[in-house]
């Protein structure tokens, strides 16, 4: 088990290393940030001065190596635009995004999993077909459109919830959260719902497919032959076996959503990381973009590790193999 984790961490380090190189090179070729920073009528000498002060006059290799050296010391550079440490900018925005994404995933799993199991248990029933048709809608409707329609109905039309912002927050240590106040919850519900729809659709489909497969297994029939109650058969025997594929989907979708909740955050003016990323890309604020992507890579790699550990917990046979 420990060997497994160490192994995974080493693999992850390589992934992170490759990612830094890719991101750095990508942004290096995209454009010249100096053009965005100086006023349009600046002289070449002034531009050159800015370039030198940011270290942009060096060769790619030198820039990369100095970036890596700083990064190893925990310094991912300062924003070209504001001069603030890139890391601080991101970390300040992180809780808002995570709160939104966690709520979205809870919604998606809490609603999608039971619906998927239901549809899988009775594939021919009309209710199941309705659920599946709904999941296709959830897949195909673009996020921004869903967001706008939800705003039109619930914020503009019915006036039940506000259309933008984070509302009142409560401070827990260094982190501000919305979900503990009624006002915050009101602000949270629409963006979380928007973000959850595609995940919900995906979870429904995966849960349904897995349920259909597991429900046909002999051990389910044996469980019925033992006279177990239906709740126990579905809630324990079936659920534990369909969780393996579902954990993958839930884990990876969580990561993807957290990293790229951009559209939803923008529409609802949710002050999260996604908004920061878009702004930084537009201004070619390289340190922030690089720091952001690096952080996300580390986060996704970590999430993958958690998913793998969850497998081991769910599947005793795999646990045995991991031990050898």
């Amino acid at each position: 088990m420990q060997a497994f984790i160490v192994n995974r961490i080493l693999q992850s380090l390589i992934v992170v290393l490759v990612m830094t190189l890719l991101v750095f090179a990508g942004l290096f070729v995209i454009g010249d940030p100096v053009q965005m920073l100086v006023s349009p009528d600046a002289t070449d000498i002034e531009k050159e001065a800015v370039r030198q002060s940011l270290g942009l006059d060096q060769s790619f290799v030198v820039q990369y190596l100095s970036f890596m050296r700083d990064a190893l010391h925990g310094d991912l550079g300062n924003s070209f635009l504001t001069g603030a440490p890139a890391m601080d900018l991101i970390l300040k925005r992180m809780p808002a995004t995570f709160e939104l994404v966690i709520c979205a995933m809870i919604l998606a799993t809490g609603i999608g999993l039971p619906l998927g199991i239901l549809a899988g248990l009775r594939p021919e029933a009309r209710s199941s077909k309705t659920i599946m048709a709904g999941s296709i809608l959830g897949f195909s409707l673009p996020n921004f459109w869903v967001a706008l329609v939800l705003i039109m109905i619930f914020a503009v039309g019915l006036g039940w919830v506000p259309a933008s912002g984070r509302g009142e927050t409560v401070q827990i240590g260094p982190i501000a959260v919305s979900f503990l106040t009624l006002d915050g919850l009101h602000h949270l519900i629409l963006p979380a719902l928007t973000l959850s729809l595609t995940k919900m659709a995906l979870i429904i489909r995966v849960a349904r497919a897995a349920t259909r497969e597991v429900a046909g297994q002999e051990y389910i029939k044996f469980a019925r032959a033992k006279g177990l109650r239906k709740n126990r058969i579905v809630g324990v025997h079936l659920l534990k076996n369909i969780m393996v594929p579902l954990i993958t989907v839930i884990g990876l979708e969580f990561g993807r959503t957290a990293a790229f909740a951009v559209v939803t955050e923008t529409i609802f003016s949710w002050p999260g990381m996604g908004k920061l990323l878009i702004d930084s890309i537009l201004t070619l604020d390289r340190p922030v973009v690089v720091a952001y992507l690096l952080l996300m890579v580390v986060f996704l790699v970590f999430l993958n590790l958690v998913v793998d550990l969850a497998y081991l917990w769910l599947d005793p046979a795999a646990r045995e193999k991991g031990r050898d």
Binding site: E218, K221, F222, A223, A225, G227, L228, V236, H237
Partner: peptide, 23 residues
């Protein structure tokens, strides 16, 4: 359900399939 597993029990063909692998 109350009869199944209490008054009538069943043994299946393939023992590698009848026990739940995760429990």
């Amino acid at each position: 359900r109350r009869v199944r597993g209490k008054d009538i029990a069943m043994i299946f063909q393939d023992p590698s399939m009848t026990l739940n692998p995760t429990l």
